[in-house]
Design a protein around this nucleic acid. Structure first.
Length: 733
DNA sequence: ATTAGGG
DNA sequence: CCCTAAT
């Protein structure tokens, strides 16, 4: 129960920082954003925290959880029926967590064209598949703020699908994921598993290495593709894998680029039964581990827990949607880069590996990387440019994938604009927002100063296990990317925990993590499960950062609550709620508002521009209509002016009209020489002045005399010589 | 949600 | 046009 509350509580404010301005009608006023600087927490701290928490959670009784849930569900449903279809946001997500396929070449010409199936299919794609599934599911939940009822069964299936074949209704083992993770954590931290000993390095797991991607990939299409909202002009396309590679792979086809809603009920592709617990555990842990690298996966972790643990999709949905209500209308014009790179290695100069470590030839390779969007097919051809001089290491990277993108675009947008948008996003990523990671035998090569020879890359026997990964560069605020937060990328192999932070965590170059207040909130929740910390916007939270030198050994948590000025504890809300279910409804709503306040990341200028509405100068006829309406209605009734004269102009809000009147007035008052833009006929400007004068007088009179409206004089537009007052709507008549 | 006003 | 404050 505690877990349930905590999870719900902590998962908000997610994309709050990025509040794009789309169509005016769709824009949602959001509370003043505040910054909470200095929320720092090390990934390891969080790991330790959550690991411990999960250990506790694992012990919680599923039965009791379900009991609570069943009870709660009805209550929640009653309270939130209206949230059923609050949002039809559709977003386009280009997702990939991928790694290049690298085809090492020896001097043996016969070897040159050989692929590295183990690395590709096993190490990378298998993982990717798992992530993709979970992320997509979660993504849909997040974006749409809803889960179709049909999703419930699916949700359970999704949770286990990739790993163990289960029947659709199988929702037992609600904390199975936790359990798996916990075991994994124990493996990692104590080098001793509570159960069987899993491979220390999952990447080396034979099943993963040479196995095909989990069949769940093919079922991805059944999860994504949310239905279009009726009132939402935006379309989202969950394009999970934006594969720019040259080599087509069947594995990915079904999960890539699907933009069409698919029957959610499509049965989950039955996965080859893997009964072995150990394998399952490994896979699951991998799933967790990788999933956390995406903010979406972030949620999926908990979401899965939530769903699987309580088998109650309705409650889940409502809680979810309830929490998200402030954002239901939010539109995302920007595109956000999200890291879910498999490597998880970020920073520390890995990005410059091509130049440094692969002399000469590397530059070609690198430039080709950047040119991926333009002419990806030429990548493979670059192989020929690798001369075969002995001291050189010859590499062939057959493909790269761009990191995950998240794009939302109005459905009124043209296909061309969609293409451009995607292109820009991809280009932006490739243009500098990337790190390149090097993987050797599944391990990240962090020391950039080592030579290839020293590292062993030059040895033929190592070539099979050499890989590259494209990863968003957290320190790089790529233009048009990440306006609301840097990608969730971990400096080390950080399993699950940070997933809970999602986009709210920014990883800094010093291995510390700048977290949003929401993230802080989650942390505190995890640290003190019994206590619901208030999400006080003014709260300055700090978590010291003690990155461990051993990525496998998380440090102890060291939270420092610098100013816990709790004024309104959410627990108070529980006190007023008779039932816990109500509290569960209430708390998320509160947390949303508060959590909504914390964009840590500063928006780049370009993203700012991208979000800004396009400038649409008023035409003369529009000015005419505006002037006429104001003459009739007076100033200060902009809503009426809008309805009267601009009801059809969706892009003109009453605020716009008010602003335009303001500028018109200003224009009328300045000399013609000072005016810019399309000249407004002097006649109109005169009318503006007259109307303004008149209505100002009326306003003054009204204030002085406190006369009722019916006594006010009739404004006669003919007094300025041009207009006629034939308007029956003139209330002053 | 509107309105008013500064930027 | 944006953003905020005040209704």
């Amino acid at each position: 129960m505690v877990l349930q509350k905590r999870l719900d509580y902590g998962f908000n404010g997610y994309q709050v920082p990025t509040i794009p301005r789309a169509t005016r009608s769709a824009r949602k006023r959001v509370p003043f954003r505040k910054r909470v600087e200095g929320n720092r927490i090390s990934a390891f701290d969080l790991l330790a925290t959550v690991a411990g928490t999960l250990l506790l959670d694992k012990e919680s009784s599923p039965a009791s959880n379900n009991a609570w849930n069943a009870e709660d569900q009805s209550a929640v449903e009653k309270n939130n029926v209206k949230e059923e279809r609050q949002d039809g946001d559709q977003s386009l997500k280009l997702e990939t967590c991928n790694v290049s396929e690298l085809v090492p070449q020896t001097n043996d010409p016969n070897y040159s064209s050989r692929e590295s199936p183990s690395l590709q299919n096993g190490t990378q794609f298998g993982v990717t598949s798992a992530i993709t599934t979970s992320e997509r599911l979660d993504y849909q939940k997040l974006i749409n703020g809803k889960i179709k009822n049909e999703m419930g069964g699916l949700a359970c299936k999704v949770e286990t699908g990739p790993f163990v074949s289960r029947t659709p209704g199988d929702c037992v083992e609600p904390v199975s994921e936790n359990k798996v993770l916990t075991d994994e954590e124990l493996d990692r931290t104590n080098k001793a598993s509570s159960g069987e000993v899993a491979d220390k390095c999952p990447l080396e797991d034979p099943l993963v290495l040479d196995g095909k991607p989990p069949a769940v990939v093919s079922s991805d299409s059944s999860i994504k593709a949310p239905s279009f909202g009726e009132h939402d002009p935006f379309i989202s396309f969950p394009i999970q894998q934006y594969d720019v590679n040259v080599v087509s792979r069947d594995d990915d086809e079904k999960s890539s680029g699907c933009t069409h809603p698919s029957p959610i009920r499509e049965p989950f592709r039955s996965t080859p039964r893997i009964g072995d617990r150990r394998i399952r555990k490994i896979l699951a842990s991998r799933y967790w581990k990788v999933a956390l690298r995406s903010k979406n996966a972030t949620y999926s972790n908990y979401d899965e827990n939530l769903k699987s643990g309580y088998c109650n999709r309705s409650t889940y949905k409502r809680l979810r949607s309830g929490r998200n209500f402030p954002f239901k209308k939010r539109k995302f014009l920007h595109y956000t880069s999200e890291s879910n790179s498999d490597g998880g290695t970020i920073g520390e100069g890995i990005s410059d590996l091509p130049e440094k470590n692969i002399n000469g030839k590397a530059s070609i390779l690198y430039s080709k990387m950047h040119g991926v969007t333009g002419e990806p097919s030429s990548l493979a051809d670059q192989r020929k440019s690798f001369n075969s001089r002995d001291p050189h290491v010859k590499l062939r990277i057959k493909s790269f994938r761009v990191p995950e993108l998240f794009i939302e675009i109005p459905e009124s947008a043209t296909v061309g604009s969609l293409k451009r948008t995607v292109k820009e996003a991809v280009t932006a990523i490739l243009g500098g927002g990337l790190c390149v990671g090097v993987l050797l035998q599944g391990k990240k090569v962090r020391d950039d100063n080592k030579t290839l020879l020293q590292t062993g890359i030059s040895r033929d026997n190592q070539m099979d296990s050499l890989g590259f990964s494209l990863e968003p560069n957290p320190s790089h605020t790529s233009p048009s990317l990440c306006p609301g937060g840097s990608p969730l990328t971990l400096p080390h192999d950080i399993p699950l925990p940070l997933a809970s932070l999602g986009e709210e965590a920014n990883f800094l170059s010093d291995n510390s993590i700048l977290i949003h207040e929401a993230a802080w909130f989650k942390c505190m929740e995890l640290v003190s499960p019994g206590k619901l910390y208030p999400a006080n916007p003014g709260l300055v939270n700090q978590v010291t950062c003690h990155p461990s030198t051993d990525p496998c050994i998380p440090n102890a948590c060291d939270f420092i609550e610098s100013n816990n000025d709790c004024t309104a504890s959410p627990t108070d809300m529980f006190d007023k709620s008779t039932t816990e279910s109500k509290a569960l409804v209430a708390v998320p709503a509160m947390s949303v508002e508060t959590l909504a306040a914390v964009p840590v990341h500063k928006k780049s200028k370009q993203s700012e521009v991208a979000q800004r509405r396009i400038r649409r100068p008023f035409s003369i006829s529009e000015v005419e209509a505006l002037v006429q309406a104001v003459e009739k209605l007076g100033t200060g009734r902009w809503r009426d002016v809008k309805l009267r004269a601009f009801d059809n102009a969706k892009h003109r809000t009453y605020v716009d009209l008010k602003d335009k009147w303001k500028t018109l007035l200003h224009t009328a008052r300045i000399s013609p020489q000072q005016r810019r833009g399309e000249p407004v006929p002097q006649e109109l400007l005169d009318r503006v002045l007259n109307a303004h004068t008149y209505w100002s007088q009326q306003q003054a009179k009204q204030q002085q005399q406190q006369l009722p409206e019916s006594c006010l004089p009739h404004y006669n537009s003919t007094m300025i010589g041009s207009g006629r007052c034939d308007d029956d709507e003139n209330i002053l008549g």
